[in-house]
Design a protein around this nucleic acid. Sequence first.
DNA 1: TCCCAAACGAACAGATATGAACATATCATG
DNA 2: CATGATATGTTCATATCTGTTCGTTTGGGA
Lengths: 256, 256
Amino acid sequence: MTRAERLAALLERLVSDGKIDVEHSADHFDVSAATIRRDLDYLAEQQLLARTHGGAVPNSTSYDLPLRYKSTSRGEAKTRIAQRAVEMLWPGCTVSLNGGTTTVEVARAIPSAEPLHHGITVVTNALNIATELTVRPFIKIVVCGGVARPQSYELVGALATETLSQLTPDICFLGAIGLDPEAGITTNDEAESAINRVMVKQAKRTVVVIDSSKLGTVGFSRICHVSEVAAILTDSGADSQMVATLRSHGVEVILA
Amino acid sequence: MTRAERLAALLERLVSDGKIDVEHSADHFDVSAATIRRDLDYLAEQQLLARTHGGAVPNSTSYDLPLRYKSTSRGEAKTRIAQRAVEMLWPGCTVSLNGGTTTVEVARAIPSAEPLHHGITVVTNALNIATELTVRPFIKIVVCGGVARPQSYELVGALATETLSQLTPDICFLGAIGLDPEAGITTNDEAESAINRVMVKQAKRTVVVIDSSKLGTVGFSRICHVSEVAAILTDSGADSQMVATLRSHGVEVILA
DNA sequence: TCCCAAACGAACAGATATGAACATATCATG
DNA sequence: CATGATATGTTCATATCTGTTCGTTTGGGA
């Protein structure tokens, strides 16, 4: 049994039993109590449950979100990218996130417990990110208006453009479907690319967060050219030729 | 029995009995009176109840108990209210929903499969409702901007007011903490009541959806007077005296 | 007002849970 | 195969929970 499976099983147990007992779970999963405690601490950090002495109980919001813990493809690469991304933040900064699996990981990686990251304001047009971060303490979450797109949970349209145009975050982490030196940064929906373009334009600094498998990929609608962003943050699996090409275009490339 | 379970049970006992007796509870849970006292002190510290000599009583905010402590006993009443509410909709109509457990039920009750309810547009300031409805086919979901409130998932603030002021839905289903002929329709947060007031003002017709246990209850901040809404939709458990009083104020009362 | 039983808070002690530190094992990667 | 990173187990000092005791306070009745 992998760690991810155990975490998911713990959450299922929490939902079905209403509580988790450390000793009993350690016995059931055949691991030490220390491991279960570390698991529970990790889940508590993400507000998926509340620790108690001897175990854990559901927190006030976890009823609606039992299956939030899903492992994604290339999950470990995205996690590394996300951890590198949050290192760029500072107390009191404002950060914008668009929709996408990588930006969700960035949102999850924002450590609300550490004083180092207190007072961060997150602006987003992604409903799932907003819902997840709402329960986090010490994070102010601002949502733009708009019409929700079923596939990506992103808010798009005139309302979204209008509200985002009023805000100027310090840094924008931009997720995308593809990134190519020629075709630029692309997504699959023209409404999404339109609102994402506004986010890039408004932010003082934009960092593209994208796993290496998407480098060289071209989606339907362009958000912007690579020269319009400050940096590209990807994982170490990136093709070195591609990295060199991007750097020759004057874009900073960070490998996590 | 764990400490967490005992705390939850104490709060449930408080809700059902209206008070807690230290000695009796110590006997019932098979712990010492000192433990019960410490439990009650802990809960009082969190403003979940008020200590008395020999026990505890609900405090003024105990209806704001965290979700995990709330009894689900009124679930079927809310379901009936929700089903009656969606009967008021028609194909192509626009409906606004604020946050709250009852409005969530209304959102869930909107049948996206039936052609009868095709093309419905839902406007909401509640993130959880928006997230849940986003995956439904044939429903267009519009979200206002704003800052997210952790307790209720509602978007509030200037951005929310601004965006909602641009929209005029056909009907608004309004959830609330309390409804009283004199004190009006109330909630516990002034920022929420402000944005809810805008929703009432913008909608062509407002229907309050509220379970009968909240009739006569008064929260901290008024959304509007009962005369400002078109109808009150509650369950058949409503006190007949209260219903008569409300009707004498010229408000339509619907019992589901 | 006075009195007293019940309730309370503080202090202590035993049992259990916890966190930190370190050691070991597993795994992906070059 | 070597290496670094991550996950897990073990140990021990510390923290938390609970029950008990005891002196003090509270609230109601004479």
